[in-house]
């Protein structure tokens, strides 16, 4: 095992992730109080507090992408572009990942992956979609009462809840994979340290690693 640490996420990217993570968890929890009627915490004063928290963290969640865009625009945009780009091999990779690799750990037939694996891309894409839906419907529900037709609010509520449930499921999967799934659970370290082991980079993101190495070599050549 090669212990060399490969830099994968900048400090900005990591901050983004963890703030987003905390905000999401809070929103999911406070949202669940309203969504699932058997949560007694939703009642009365405490319910009001949880709804206040929901609003505060919604603001935080909305602020995160904007702040990140300001703090580290280059990386963020690059990550977004990469995360949302689906190539033929990504689609193939996804099939292999879902049907075999995530169950057996057998990488046979798995095309080489870039910075984000097809699984991660799926997560990113769905999270962004859910984010957009919840942001729009959330704001409508927050400020649109009394101004907008009641039907629109009713459907907004459905979309908001639906998107929240979907996003929660993706996040559960995501957490599972980075903590419990043996094939991928090393990835969590990268979100703490910003680096991955060379082995992890080679097995999970070979294309990215190669590109990284290539870039580094060419820089060294030029310098040399």
């Amino acid at each position: 095992m090669n212990g060399r640490a490969i830099s994968r996420f900048t400090a900005g990217e990591r901050l983004f992730h963890w703030v987003y993570f905390v905000a999401f968890l809070t929103l999911a929890t406070t949202g669940a109080f309203l969504y699932l009627p058997w949560f007694s915490f939703a009642i009365g004063e405490s319910g009001e507090t949880s709804r206040l928290l929901h609003r505060l963290f919604a603001l935080l969640l909305l602020a995160v992408p904007i702040l990140t865009l300001i703090v580290s625009p280059k990386e963020f945009r690059a990550d977004l572009r990469e995360g949302l780009t689906w190539r033929a091999e990504d689609r193939r990779a996804l099939r292999v990942l879902l049907t075999r690799y995530y169950w057996t750990g057998d990488p046979a037939g798995l095309p080489p992956q870039g910075k984000f694996t097809a699984g991660q891309k799926l997560n990113i894409g769905l999270q962004i979609l859910a984010f957009a839906v919840m942001a729009v419907t959330g704001l409508l529900l927050w400020f649109g009462r009394g101004l907008l037709p009641v039907g629109l609010l009713r459907w907004s509520l459905i979309l908001h809840g639906g998107a929240a449930v979907a996003a929660t499921c993706f996040v559960l999967v995501h957490i599972y994979m980075v903590t419990l799934l043996p094939m991928t659970n090393q990835a969590i370290a990268s979100m703490f340290l910003g680096t991955v082991s060379e082995e992890h980079a080679l097995t999970h993101h070979p294309k990215w690693y190669e590109a990284l190495v290539r870039r580094r070599m060419s820089r060294a050549e030029r310098r040399g």
Binding site: I43, E48, L52, V150, R154
Partner: peptide, 28 residues
């Protein structure tokens, strides 16, 4: 005492009956 001001009833009512005495910002 049990109400937390979520306002679901407002959107659900087909007669537009329930009303919310609510702070727009905090939702209280």
């Amino acid at each position: 005492d049990l109400c937390n001001g979520c306002g679901y009833c407002l959107t659900a009512c087909p007669f537009d009956i329930p009303q919310l005495e609510s702070n727009v910002l905090t939702g209280r």
